[in-house]
Write a protein that binds this DNA or RNA. Structure first.
Lengths: 117, 117
DNA sequence: TACCAGTACTCAGCAACACCAAGTACCAGA
DNA sequence: TCTGGTACTTGGTGTTGCTGAGTACTGGTA
């Protein structure tokens, strides 16, 4: 999707991953794969792993090492209480932003309508 | 709104400003003031000016110096054809992202409902 | 006159984040 | 043995918004 999505993901990717973990615990490789399935085709593994380490260090998730039949052990992340709280903040920040932008979008549509008549 | 909104603004603030200019040409100080009125109370002047210089260098806006009765001359920015095109891309990128996140939000709501019953 | 507040823009340095690229390690099947 | 899939790590880069200070011009006030 070009460079715009890269910048737009900053700050939101974190929320997306936390939201994913809220639905169900998961490990890095799995999360990356799911994101790609959901349309974030350009997401790089390194990005996701770095993000997971960050949210772990902030105490938003609990980690458990689980052996895998095929490869190194998996680090399974699950959202904890603090993470849920943080996710709630994310939703409200996101909603605020989305509302403003939606409003702007409608303002423009209205401006264009006036221009056309 | 804390640090979350700072990161979330990355990439979107540009679109917000371009969208503002699409409605009506404006100068930096004015844009900053409008953003604050719209709820982005923490927006700093320096951020907006830097952004304006960036989009000017990318050729997304035209600039015109207009004398002011009270203070230094104003640099009035207006969206040009290239900027409109770029703004269209912004809308589509944004819509994609907003859709995914909205979907995630609903997934969580559904998960919680199941948990409660 | 001197000073301050409001207007309007500039600039150097910083922190956070996503990307890039390469690497490690483990297993199964050809 | 070697390839491909799984799974995680790490060092470096570029973009972006924030911080904080500075410049400059005007009008009002003591």
């Amino acid at each position: 999707m070009g460079k715009q999505s890269t910048e737009m993901l900053k700050g939101t990717l974190e929320g997306i991953v936390l939201a994913t973990l809220a639905v169900q615990p998961a490990y890095g490789y799995e999360i990356t794969a799911r994101l790609r399935e959901q349309g974030f085709t350009d997401i790089v593994e390194g990005t996701v792993y770095a993000l997971l380490i960050r949210i772990e260090q902030r105490g938003l998730v609990d980690v458990e090492k689980v052996p895998s039949e095929k490869g190194p052990p998996r680090k399974v992340y699950s959202l904890n209480a603090q993470g849920s709280e943080y996710l709630e903040e994310f939703w409200s920040t996101w909603s605020f932003l989305a509302d403003r932008i939606e409003q702007l979008h409608q303002n423009i549509a209205r401006t264009n309508d006036q221009g056309e008549n």
